[in-house]
Simulated assay, not measured.
Amino acid sequence: AVNFQWTDDELKYVPNQYHNYPVVGGWYGSQDGSYEEFIASEPDIVIESIDEGGDGDLSTVKERQDKFGKIPVVAVNDTTNVEKIGESITFMGEVVGAQDKAKELNDFNNKYLDMVHDKSSKLSDSNKKTVYYAQGDDGLQTNPSHSTHGQLIDLVGGKNVADSVSQGNTTAGVQVSMEQVISWNPDKIITNDPEFYSHVYNDSNWGKINAVKNKEVYLSPQSPFKWFDRPVGANMIIGVPWTAKVLYPDDYKDINMKDATKEFYSNFYHIDLSDDDAKQILLDSGLKESNL
Rank of each mutant, 00 (worst) to 15 (best):
I153N: 07
D154A: 07
L155I: 04
L155V: 04
L155R: 03
L155A: 05
V156Y: 12
G157S: 13
G158Y: 06
K159A: 15
V161K: 05
V161R: 03
V161W: 05
A162W: 03
A162R: 06
D163N: 13
S164D: 14
S164W: 04
V165Q: 13
V165K: 10
S166V: 11
Q167A: 13
G168H: 08
N169Y: 10
T170F: 15
T170A: 06
T170I: 08
T170Q: 06
T170H: 05
T171K: 08
T171E: 11
A172L: 11
G173L: 07
V174D: 10
V174M: 15
V174R: 08
Q175A: 13
V176P: 00
S177F: 00
S177E: 05
S177K: 00
M178C: 08
M178W: 11
E179Q: 00
E179R: 00
E179H: 01
Q180Y: 02
S183E: 03
W184L: 00
W184A: 00
N185D: 15
N185Q: 09
P186S: 11
P186K: 07
P186V: 13
D187E: 13
D187R: 10
K188E: 10
I189Q: 05
I189D: 08
I190F: 09
T191H: 04
T191K: 02
N192A: 11
D193M: 03
D193E: 13
P194H: 05
P194Q: 08
P194S: 09
E195M: 05
F196M: 02
F196D: 00
Y197R: 00
Y197T: 00
S198K: 00
H199F: 04
H199E: 01
H199G: 01
H199Y: 11
H199C: 02
H199D: 02
H199V: 01
H199L: 03
V200I: 11
Y201R: 02
Y201N: 03
Y201F: 08
Y201P: 01
Y201K: 03
N202T: 02
N202Q: 06
D203N: 02
D203A: 02
S204M: 06
S204F: 05
S204C: 09
N205K: 02
W206I: 01
G207P: 08
N210G: 14
N210V: 15
N210A: 10
A211P: 12
V212W: 01
V212E: 01
K213P: 14
K213T: 14
K215Q: 15
K215V: 07
E216H: 10
E216Q: 12
V217N: 04
V217S: 06
Y218W: 12
L219Q: 06
S220V: 03
S220P: 06
P221L: 06
Q222I: 07
Q222W: 04
Q222G: 15
S223Q: 13
S223I: 10
P224V: 06
P224S: 13
F225Y: 12
F225L: 15
K226W: 14
K226F: 11
K226E: 14
W227A: 03
W227F: 09
W227V: 05
